[in-house]
Write a protein that binds this DNA or RNA. Structure first.
Lengths: 144, 144
DNA sequence: GGAGATCCCTACCAATCCCATCGGAAGCGG
DNA sequence: CCGCTTCCGATGGGATTGGTAGGGATCTCC
């Protein structure tokens, strides 16, 4: 599985937005998250992140508010976005007319479907929840 | 699943050797297969194929005989080589110290094992047999 | 012992991504 | 209107990819 750094950043960005979304108290409307904050938390070069988020917006995963107190937010609920969705949108999917006439066609199909199976059933809500639990395990003194 | 052309060539080369091996009558010892023949059958630039086979030999999958009537042959039986074996040897396997401390570690593990599962249980003997059957289906007049 | 065929090795190259940075324009809130 | 923030196009170095070129080195068969 060859995952480009760019794709990794995209996943981390969506993950960050999902985490922020889920930590937020539902009373007030969710405020946008600034690029600079995401970049700092996820260790992503800020300028690079800008263009990644641009693509992510084009693909309809996130939405943005300009100006002061602007930023990015998720366009859908965190449990309605899977890792596979984001990955397929970000990676330039050059399906390139899979040559059906070679001996490997079958095995590539099998691999693709195996990968999709695991990628398409993990949502970012799940990811964020698991991560929060794991963090709580290592810093369990928060309410003592 | 991002597969480089080079890896594809390597797979095709091993597949070609396996096919030749299985078509050969077992009475006489298997004669080596020439690079030029593999290149022509599998549509691979000959000089490029040379260096790919070199690597494949270094990895222990194939063996070579020099001189007139020389060429390449499999180092193991076709049913003892899986697609995964070849792929891992050819692709520069930069495992790169999987960061265990990110939210995606788990999912990458799951993907890797899913991919390995399908890649490691397909041997080239299987591939060659399936291919021969498929060809026979489309050109069924060979013995009429 | 040649001759011819083959493997082997090093170097090189052009194109294409990949990762990132810069500079400003445009929009929004106070 | 001013500061903050997203947006957008251009640029650029570096690595990788896909391939070429050519000359040995070495083996086998006659």
């Amino acid at each position: 599985m060859n995952i480009s750094v760019k794709s990794e950043y995209a996943l981390k960005a969506v993950f960050d937005l999902a985490s922020q979304h889920m930590e937020h108290r539902q009373a007030s409307p969710m405020p946008p998250v600034k690029i600079a904050d995401i970049a700092k938390r996820q260790r992503i070069p800020q300028k690079f992140l800008e263009l990644i988020l641009g693509g992510l917006k084009q693909s309809g995963f996130v939405d943005s508010r300009r100006g002061a107190e602007g930023g990015y937010l998720l366009a859908r609920a965190p449990d309605a976005i899977t890792v596979g969705d984001v990955l397929r949108a970000v990676e330039n999917v050059k399906v390139a007319a899979r040559n059906n006439n070679d001996p490997f066609a079958e095995i590539w199909r099998r691999v693709d479907s195996a990968v999709s199976a695991v990628l398409d059933d993990t949502t970012f809500a799940e990811l964020a929840r698991n991560w929060q639990e794991k963090q709580a395990q290592f810093v369990p003194n928060w309410d003592i």
